[in-house]
Write a protein that binds this DNA or RNA. Structure first.
Lengths: 199, 199
DNA sequence: TACTTTTGCTGACAGTGTTAACTTTTGTAC
DNA sequence: GTACAAAAGTTAACACTGTCAGCAAAAGTA
């Protein structure tokens, strides 16, 4: 009864096509150029077919957001395990986070910005949590190795994350300013944070 | 010939009405609920009248962004001059910036987020510059009073601004989480920055 | 072959920003 | 006070958007 399997495969294929074509449009013309009708055109189906696979446009956005967080979590984890000391790890996280935003600006914008729906980020929670965990665990280890072992982990993790996001967001807002300067700001801020953390 | 003055006054009145009614809609239902037709309805004119006063919807957004930056610059300046030492001033700037974002979230979102048009922030440049200047001048003074007087002012100013924005943006994204915690994160980050700055 | 289920399409609804073309009002000159 | 020009304001359209009800066609089953 491989018949239903083939059907399932075909369905999956359409779903993949939707995401692939959508991504191409996003990469070439930005998120705001993406419309259900354009997706339908690209996959050579009519519009309601898109809704067979995604409840709404927001669901498509969410899928990319999820993908982005998963990608980011992966890279952060890799960068972290390549270092030994917690401070080196933090520096690596900072650099990797930055690099991710530079290499995948569209993903980053979808994950954060767009700001629009003030966040229905419920389904992508799992992936966000993974990113959050990397920060928490590394900060935790750093605190343990520091001179103030009773520091609030959550507080410091959020601070770290916020600093990184702030630098990237500001960089994206003020346009493609000198990336050299931007990198220096990042390193300066990270170094300052680590110093304050380790005491 | 007070006739053309009256006309001018009437024009101004419509312009003001557009902004006032728009702002009411934004406050009550958010930016995405604002449409040219709704504005026209609210001011009891037809849609093209709106275009007599604002080239596009983006121009309306820009006007509010400008307004927001002017408001922010004002508050920052007031808070700054109320303090003596540069470090106190920086702390005051941090608190005021935070308070502004809390009290005027819609303004803040329009000024930054929305991210949408990747920024046609050309006309609101003047107001942004004022905000930027407050940061630069205060940081400059702080550096002069610090143990490393040769520190890069621009770098530190951008770092400071980025940290503040990052904390606020993350707070807005992750919804109305415990504001007590958020405030503590802010103070911790600011204190860390100042410490690193002053050496 | 007859029937059912799935699949996909057409066409519509209620919106959006924006603008061309037309009408009405208003101010000026005779 | 009437004739004309300029300004102000209107309607109606264009080209889109997300979304979905209802119908036609194809595919699988008996």
């Amino acid at each position: 009864m491989g018949i239903s399997e083939r059907k399932h495969r075909q369905l999956e294929q359409v779903r993949t096509a939707i995401l692939a074509q959508s991504w191409q449009i996003i990469e070439e013309e930005g998120w705001e150029a993406l419309s259900i009708r354009r997706i339908a055109d690209a996959i050579e189906y009519s519009t309601p077919v898109v809704y067979k696979h995604f409840e709404s446009k927001e669901a498509i956005r969410s899928a990319f957001s999820q993908e982005g967080y998963a990608l980011l979590a992966n890279r952060l984890l890799k960068a972290k395990t390549a270092c030994d000391s917690p401070t080196d790890q933090l520096m690596a996280l900072s650099n990797t986070y930055w690099a991710f935003a530079q290499e995948h600006p569209k993903h980053y914008q979808i994950m954060y910005g767009l700001g629009i729906p003030t966040c229905e980020m419920v389904r992508e929670t799992r992936e966000i949590l993974e990113v959050s965990n990397v920060f928490h665990e590394t900060i935790e280890a750093a605190i343990q190795a520091s001179k103030q072992p009773d520091t609030d982990v959550h507080l410091k993790a959020m601070t770290f994350w916020s600093i990184l996001h702030g630098l990237i967001a500001m960089g994206m807002i003020s346009g493609p300013g000198d990336p050299q300067t931007a990198k220096r700001i990042l390193e300066d801020a990270t170094a300052g944070f680590i110093k304050a953390l380790m005491g």
